[in-house]
Design a binder for these strands. Structure first.
Lengths: 117, 117
DNA sequence: AATATATATGAACACTTGTTCATATATTAA
DNA sequence: TTAATATATGAACAAGTGTTCATATATATT
């Protein structure tokens, strides 16, 4: 029995290609996944998340701790907040930021395991 | 006993700041971590990794499967290979790509868990 | 009310990144 | 050797991103 080879594939039968595509997460999910990882793909944001993992902090303390300008930090915090990785809580003049999600920690650790291997 | 407040911090004592900094992974590791996540921060690369998770594939099949140009794919494969997330194996004219590292899968799954929550 | 403090934001800019196009390299077939 | 196939790569370009600078907003203090 001759294998039915789709004209566009080299080694995959059309059936195999379909099965493969079906077993992959939907495109839309993969796009969201890339967007999630974009949040961790900048060293400033990674350092922010790493610090907030230890304890909640206000903007100026974070800035001092990381050696980043207040403005740059504020911009990044906004991005992290929109992505719902970080939340804020006002106490008078000061706003405290903390991790919004326990998943952040596990994603973080997974990555560290790989980097340290 | 008065708290010794470092002039540069608002709510952190100098001691707290030191402890916090000490408990964070070293800067250099955080930079590597960001670089690792950069690999997952592009939808084309995520889709490549997702496909290779199912099975090893040659460049043209991958291109057809994902609907990406051969050139674009080749460029991305080079990037993934340099990052040691992917490896290649030649068989005559054809080069098969596969995941280089089992960590890739776990990083992937962790992210999916978060996206799907 | 005026001032000081803490944070946010818009615009501009430099830098990075992913794709395309054209072409190069490598292997196989004729 | 020549032609065909599979993959790689350099240059150019468009789009995206992170920072800075100046300024705005919000709260507290005097």
């Amino acid at each position: 029995m001759k294998k039915e080879l789709s004209p566009s594939f080299l080694h995959l039968t059309a059936a195999q290609a379909r099965t493969l595509a079906k077993n992959m997460p939907p495109e839309e999910v993969l796009y969201e996944l890339a967007d999630l990882y974009k949040m961790f793909a900048d060293s400033t944001r990674v350092r922010i998340l790493s610090a907030l993992q230890a304890q909640e902090l206000c903007v100026l303390d974070l800035a001092a701790l990381l050696g980043v300008s207040q403005s740059a930090l504020s911009h990044q915090l906004r991005i992290l907040k929109q992505a719902k990785l970080v939340k804020s809580q006002r106490e008078g003049k000061i706003i405290f930021y903390s991790l919004a999600d326990s998943h952040v920690e596990s994603i973080f650790k997974q990555g560290l395991d790989h980097v340290r291997e």
